[in-house]
Design a protein around this nucleic acid. Structure first.
Lengths: 295, 295
DNA sequence: GGTGATCCATACATATATGTATACATGGAC
DNA sequence: GTCCATGTATACATATATGTATGGATCACC
């Protein structure tokens, strides 16, 4: 007994998705490059084959039925997979070969870029990816990089940015540190601990103060512009550091401070120069990165 | 600039997936209920539209090209989504209404079934799901339940079972317990700690001994047939318990013992009576559970 | 080496889907 | 109320895709 999905007409499925997302047959026809009567018939045939009413025909516009709403979720998954397929297909074309230079923070470069690069090599084998670990937006304006992964929205009008996702972090310290010092029980205790700063301690203090966590500047005992070094310091037990949960999960000796509280959310932006976005190669890597980073 | 995926012929995509999975055009034609020439032309047209060679024609059989292999991954995602769509569509049909009784262990019933039930209500609103928290396979043979979620493969020939996935667990204890006692540093330390047994302590001791973790039977200070009660005991600091990582993740006061070591992998089986599997309603819930549990 | 099974590609007739043109309905602007 | 923009459904001609039939090629088997 084979599943009914193999006997579904996948083009009808595509028609359903487009119609549901556009809210009209005409709109879906425009999006798909077909005509409105075609969409009308495809939807009707699809409903007949499923033996279900997908849309409520209310004169002016179509409305999803209850069943249609449930099915739309699965159809959207299919649309995402189809989009990914299209991207991968572009990546396989040899005429898009060349180098694309991507810049990301050192932590991102070290923690997520290896796997992303691996995925990208599979999906766009013709493209050579050059990962530069810096954190200044100037790289893009000076054309020293093609695409940047950033955690703040860039202001320059010459840049285009797409919000990809959001990462969550918390406060962590090594178990050895917490065993040696008194384990903090309340937010007040935190001021008497050693803190590690990534970058400028003052900027970090202000940031934590904004999270309702005021700390004296003396609390920051060590700092490093290099995020990886700061993180290694934290791992070896030098103090408390706020860091991305995924990074922390890879270090079993790290323990979350006051679990559940003081969560930091930082967005992930994909940025490129507006002129570069018209280059098919860079455009492809941009879209692939958006797909790979946006899990 | 719209994505190229909207202009892809999704039926060609389906043809590609079937051909790649079957290894031949004829096989794909049989699966899809089409003829071999149709598949031949669809694949050729698809390759032309993508401007990519997907298969290497080597007389006897088709072999995926490098590009085809990369694209197959995305196509499989699409196939999965299409299968899910087909299941949801079945669930929306009113003629499949009725009750299905599912039995699962108490921990599973409490931890995963609520969300699964919610998903299932969305995808098959006509079906009333009855969740029974027990762990004996007899329920199925006596027809006291229609479907069982189990962690051992059933032996009875009258039952059909499908392996859905695998869950991973580790040893956990409450932070309060670990603060009060000496925090274990090595595997040897574990024998001097208090252990909590789910079910029969002897069976659990044997199970842990099989994981190269020999414990005296006196180490088990408390036990409960009811897994939830054992878990609550562990959360309140009565000792060490091996438990699923997802369950542990929801209890911030629980800390993993010797992080990374002593991992327990237990399979998830979906079981039903072979006769029941022919009932469309139960068959549907079976497939939906397989889809929902197998993430 | 012959034979049958299996597989892919092509030709041709037919079935199916699509586009064009059109009729009809609705709601907003004036 | 009238006009116009927008949207859906149907008729008809045409373009496209599909099935049937067939030929060629390869491999397993005797």
């Amino acid at each position: 007994m084979d599943h009914p999905s193999t006997h579904l007409d996948w083009n009808h499925l595509r028609a359903f998705l487009a119609t549901a997302e556009c809210g009209s047959l005409s709109g879906a026809a425009r999006r798909l490059g077909l005509t409105q009567p075609t969409l009308s018939r495809q939807i009707a045939a699809f409903e007949a084959s499923l033996d279900l009413l997908l849309f409520e025909r209310s004169a002016r516009n179509l409305m999803l039925t209850e069943a249609g709403r449930a099915l739309l979720l699965d159809a959207k998954d299919m649309g995402k997979a189809a989009a990914a397929f299209g991207l991968t297909a572009s990546g396989q074309r040899s005429e898009l070969s060349g180098t694309v230079r991507v810049t990301a923070s050192d932590i991102m470069s070290w923690h997520v870029m290896p796997q992303v690069t691996q995925q990208l090599r599979l999906r766009a084998p013709q493209i050579m990816l050059d990962v530069v670990a810096t954190d200044t937006i100037q790289d893009l304006l000076r054309r020293e990089a093609d695409i940047a992964i950033r955690h703040v929205r860039p202001e320059q009008p010459a840049l285009i940015a797409r919000l990809i996702g959001q990462k969550t972090g918390h406060l962590y310290a090594a178990r050895s540190y917490l065993d040696a010092r008194k384990r903090p029980e309340t937010a007040q205790d935190l001021a008497h601990h050693d803190w590690i700063a990534m970058g400028d301690p003052k900027r970090m203090r202000d940031h934590l103060a904004g999270m309702n966590l005021p700390l004296p500047i003396e609390a920051f005992r060590v700092a490093s512009e290099n995020g990886l070094i700061a993180w290694e310091m934290a791992k070896s037990g030098l103090g408390i550091i706020p860091i991305d949960d995924d990074v922390a999960a890879q270090a079993p000796q790290m323990e979350q401070i006051l679990p559940g509280s003081f969560s930091v959310k930082f967005p992930v932006w994909l940025v490129t120069h507006s002129e570069l976005h018209t280059s098919p190669r860079i455009r492809l890597v941009f879209d692939l990165l958006a797909d790979l980073l946006g899990d």
